[in-house]
Each structure stands twice: as structure tokens, then as C-alpha cells.
Amino acid sequence: MYLTTNGGKIALAQLIDGACEAEDFFPAFGEGGRWLFFTAAAIRNEGGEIRATVSIGVAGWRAGEDEQTLIRRADEAVYAAKRRGKNCVVEV
């Protein structure tokens, strides 16, 4: 389930308890714009302070590519970032 804010979409993450996933299209990022998909989770250290982590997948639109293919590539990029560890960006 997504909540819509400022044209983007935010949802509770399915893989990480207490995390959120978001997506949005940024037309000013590069030629043709970029879809950004990311997951963010608040993590508390031993002192109870919140520490944030982010995994970001970036996909640039390719000529002739349909929206579903672009979204699939961006989704694959965000999951690749998650596999690499916290605070990673993967561009495809």
C-alpha cells in the first residue's frame, strides 16, 4: 500500500520492520530524468539515538523504453543497493 506525497509514493517496507520505501520521478536529474526508489530505516544505537540508513536505486530512461521496464530496472537497482549494505546508491 502506498501513500502519496508530493507526487511520489511512500510505503512501509516489506523486508525491513519499521522501514519505509519510496519512489518518485525527478525530471531534472540527467537527460530524460531519473526514477528514484529507496528504502530508509531508523536504527537506534546502544544509547538510544536514532541512526538513519538509506539504499537508493537510480534508473535513467532509455529511448524506446516503456514505463514498466524503467520502473523494473529502478526496482532492481534499489534491491542491489540493499544487498551491498547500508547507505548505498546503485545506478543502472
Rank of each mutant, 00 (worst) to 15 (best):
A81N: 02
G8C: 01
D75F: 04
P27Y: 04
E46R: 10
L12E: 06
A40N: 10
T69Q: 09
E46Q: 11
G48K: 00
A41C: 14
R51V: 15
E46K: 10
Q68P: 00
A74N: 09
R84I: 07
E31C: 06
R83Y: 07
E23A: 15
A81T: 03
K82G: 03
A28V: 07
F29D: 06
T39N: 04
G30K: 02
E65K: 03
V78W: 00
T5D: 15
R44I: 13
G47R: 15
E65F: 02
G47S: 13
F38R: 00
E65I: 04
A40D: 09
G64K: 03
R72L: 13
G33M: 02
E31P: 07
Q68C: 06
G48S: 03
K82S: 03
E67R: 11
A28G: 07
G60A: 11
R84D: 12
R72H: 12
V54A: 12
G47V: 13
A63K: 11
N6F: 14
A13H: 02
E46Y: 05
T69S: 10
E21F: 08
G32S: 05
A22H: 06
E23K: 14
A42P: 14
D17V: 09
G85F: 05
E76F: 05
A80K: 09
I50V: 11
I10P: 01
F29A: 11
A11I: 04
K9H: 11
D17N: 12
N45M: 04
F29W: 08
A11C: 07
A11Y: 02
I16P: 00
L15E: 15
G30C: 03
R84G: 06
